[in-house]
Design a protein around this nucleic acid. Sequence first.
DNA 1: TGGCAAATGTAAGCGGCGACAACATGGGGG
DNA 2: CCCCCATGTTGTCGCCGCTTACATTTGCCA
Lengths: 240, 240
Amino acid sequence: MDKDRYHHGDLANALIAAALAAVERDGVADLSLRSLAERLGVSRAAPYRHFPDRDALLAAVAARGFEALCEGYETALATPGNGVQALRAATRFYMDFASGRPGLHGLMFHTDFLTRTPPPAVLIPPANRAYDLLMRLVSATIPDADDRARKARTITVWSTTFGFVALRAAGRFKPFMRDPLEDAEIEAAILDAVAPLGAASAASPVLEGVARGLGFLKAEALETGLQFRTDRRFDVDGAA
Amino acid sequence: MDKDRYHHGDLANALIAAALAAVERDGVADLSLRSLAERLGVSRAAPYRHFPDRDALLAAVAARGFEALCEGYETALATPGNGVQALRAATRFYMDFASGRPGLHGLMFHTDFLTRTPPPAVLIPPANRAYDLLMRLVSATIPDADDRARKARTITVWSTTFGFVALRAAGRFKPFMRDPLEDAEIEAAILDAVAPLGAASAASPVLEGVARGLGFLKAEALETGLQFRTDRRFDVDGAA
DNA sequence: TGGCAAATGTAAGCGGCGACAACATGGGGG
DNA sequence: CCCCCATGTTGTCGCCGCTTACATTTGCCA
């Protein structure tokens, strides 16, 4: 019988898989290395042969999550057409990812240990790659923007999508609304805030108008976007 | 000497204050009721006379946070002018609040126990009030929108601002960018995504166009907004 | 092929924590 | 004035992260 072997065989990966399942089932706070070890039929100290501490295991799980996220972003990037459909596909994928694996997504973004400086080393490459892919996706929708505008827009898009899935996962929307919106309705609003249809391809005059304004996505609005915004601030917002 | 009294006097509030300070200093994960009790010169079990468990104390601290947030929103709501300046002021306040008290903000939004159903009872009234105030702030910037559009826009605004402060607090932006944007630059982009200048008061034709389109804010864009979006999806987005 | 060193797993224990139970204290209302 | 009960204390249990000392297996090299 394999289970009676002294050596497990692939305890590191088994731990990651078991941790992912446990996090998905009970949340990250209730995860213990002892219970994981017991579940895998291994002694309490065995996990420490593969991960220096609990946070290192969680970081490894989160790294897998970022890799999965990158995969989704890459397939989205291959979406034909102008960049808008690609960004919408990526955003959809991200929303599905976060709602389909809430534990993993929470581990990737909510967790305290991620905020420590510096972040765990295993996390940096896949997280960097996810950011790069997102920036490419966003940049394709604002072809004429300069680098700073691309960064600002990427951060805005990232903030909106992440904020939405985080708040939804936390169940923040329904309790506060009588007659709450349908999930699909909210998702559509988020999608349109992130990558409005018609932004890079004029579909109709109305849509074109929407696209023109929405988040300074179109070239003419963008070209001097940051400048006029900065200038304006002293005139209008400075009074606030 | 007061400190030698058998009864503390106001242990409940002292615990909340000490917990807030400890969370702000070391993060929520490292907070223990024992250390709090010791710091207050009280036995380890004393806190349990005032809070049934650790989460209840944390919820009480979070409730204070939501009350502070409501205060800021209320003063923002009194900002003169059209609603845009008020929403911008509120958003500024929220960003300052989150960066000035990152521990408290994290407790209010990141914490696992908040996702449980139902949320702690002490949290519901102030959290509801914060949501209502935000919805009023947002609605003032889209005077012609109907109820569903207000809700959708509120959620979008909330997602964007929350996502931004959460990701910034987690230090997510700087590691991924060479030549990162200044904080003020990013904040300006977020502010413009949430409450663009000129949205409710036409300052210039260009700005008016921006305002018209931004997130189906104006009535004419909204009326058939959800329909055409759903229809479109099968045509354009469905290809993804 | 034989043996040895590194990799891997085990057993036991330390200190800290959340939570409960039984007991002690003292301040305010009858 | 006194006693009741909110408040605080001591003792205890179980779980956890992590470390140390020891046992077994694997794979590599002479």
